[in-house]
Design a protein around this nucleic acid. Structure first.
Lengths: 209, 209
DNA sequence: GGAATCTTGTTAAAATATTCTCAGACTTAG
DNA sequence: CTAAGTCTGAGAATATTTTAACAAGATTCC
C-alpha cells in the first residue's frame, strides 16, 4: 500500500538500499530476499519490507526481489535518473575537492557552473566547470534553470546568500556551512553536511563506549 | 534524572545545541529559557528540557539556563575539552581540504599525522601536518596514541584498512568513503559522512516537495 | 501435478521518541 | 516582605518507528 507521507527515517535509508543493491548488481546477484538483504545490511527484514511498501510492491512471494529491478525502482524514487541542474557557490578547498571527486552525474545532477569572489579562481575551470564571479550569480540564476545550490562558503555569508537565492526561486540547498539555514517558504529544502556535528558525535561515542 | 543509555537522537542534537549556545554567547546573551531557545532552534521547549535532563540538571526554575554555563556543560559532554589524537589516512583533494579548513582543535582533536600512498605528497606537510607513507602506518599506530582515524581513501581499500587499524586498537573512525564499515567489536565506533546519500535525500525531497 | 518450502505485504504489537501537563522552586516588581 | 509571574524537571500521555506475526501467493523439487 503506497503511503502519502513518507517519514524522514525511511527516506534516509533509501540511499543505503540503493548502494547495497548497486553492490549486489556488481557482484552478479540476481535475486534477494528481504531476509538476506537485511543480514547484509544489519537491518531487520521487517523494516526493509515496511520501507519498500511505502512506495509500492516490488517483490514477489516465494521469490524475493529482483536485484536489478529493485535497484532501478529505488534509483527512480531517489531521482538518480533525473537531470537536476546544480551550481556551486564557493570554490575553496572543499568546493574544489567536491568538483574534482564527487560523482555528481551518478546521482542525477549536472554541475553547470561555480561562483566565487576570489579573482584567483574567477575565469578558470575546475574539472570542466567554469568559475564565474559572484556578481554574475543573479543574472545566471535568472537565465538558467537551477535546482540545487551547493554552499561551500564562509558561514557568515551563508544565510544572506541563501536568502537571495530563495528569492530568485532556488528551492534546494546542499549546505556545507556550519550554520542552520532556514526559510519561511516550506518548499525550500535544506540538506546539511555538518562536519563538526558529525565529529562531535563521534567524540561523544568513543568517550562513552 | 540522569539516564544510563542515551538515545542516538539525543546525541545528534547535542552539537546543534552547542552551536546555538556558542552563537548566543557571541551575541552576549547571558540567560535563556528552554522556550526561547526552542523558538530560535525550531524545537519544542519540552524536547530541549527532556534532552538536557538525560545528563543532569543545568537550569534553574524561574530563571532558565545560564548560556555560558550550559554551553560549557554540553561542550564537556561532547568532549570538546578532551585532547583526542587523530590521524588522517588519504591526503587527496578531500583530505587536504579538511586539513586546511576544518577546525579540529575546536572540537577537541589534534591532528598528529597523515598517511598516503602517493610519492607526490609523502614527506610534505599540509597545514603543519606531516604526511607519511602508508607503509609507516602500522609502526606509527603502535608507537603513538591514536583515538580517531579519518578515512578519506578510495572505497575499495576502506574496509581492509579499517580492519587493520581495529586490530591495532583504534576504535574511532570518521569515514568519508562511500561504504558502510563494520566491525565485530562493539566498542569500535564509526561515524560516516556519506556525501552521496545526503545529496540523494535532497534529490528526493526537492522532487516531492 | 502436488506437497513442502519460501517469501511477500499487511496488520498488530512492542518499543522509542516527542509532546503535554503540572507541582514546586525561583525570580522579579512593588 | 509579599504576591504575581516565570520556568524547570519529572511523569503521563501521544505519536511515531520498529519489530513480530501471519495469511496468501509463488517457487521448487520430486
Amino acid at each position: 500500500m503506497k503511503k502519502e507521507n513518507i517519514s524522514d527515517a525511511v527516506i534516509r535509508r533509501l540511499p543505503r538500499y540503493y548502494r547495497q543493491l548497486t553492490d549486489l548488481c556488481a557482484r552478479g546477484v540476481v535475486r534477494i530476499s528481504s531476509h538476506s538483504l537485511g543480514q547484509e545490511m544489519n537491518i531487520t527484514a521487517s523494516q526493509i519490507r515496511q520501507d519498500f511498501s511505502c512506495f509500492g510492491e516490488f517483490g514477489q512471494q516465494g521469490y524475493g526481489y529482483n536485484v536489478e529491478e529493485l535497484r532501478a525502482e529505488i534509483g527512480h524514487i531517489l531521482g538518480v535518473d533525473n537531470d537536476h541542474h546544480l551550481v556551486m557557490i564557493g570554490v575553496g578547498n572543499l568546493g574544489r575537492a567536491l568538483l574534482r571527486n564527487f560523482p555528481f552525474s551518478q546521482t542525477g545532477f549536472s554541475v553547470d557552473a561555480a561562483f566565487d569572489v576570489s579573482p584567483n579562481v574567477i575565469g578558470t575551470t575546475v574539472n570542466g566547470v567554469p568559475v564565474y564571479a559572484m556578481s554574475e550569480l543573479e543574472h545566471y540564476i535568472e537565465t538558467h534553470s537551477v535546482d540545487v545550490v551547493v554552499l561551500t562558503i564562509p558561514q557568515d555569508v551563508a544565510q544572506d546568500t541563501a536568502d537571495r537565492l530563495i528569492e530568485m526561486g532556488v528551492h534546494g540547498f546542499w549546505n556545507f556551512t556550519n550554520v542552520e539555514l532556514s526559510s519561511a517558504k516550506a518548499d525550500v529544502k535544506f540538506e546539511n553536511i555538518h562536519f563538526a556535528d558529525s565529529l562531535l558525535t563521534l567524540s561523544y561515542r568513543i568517550a562513552n563506549r
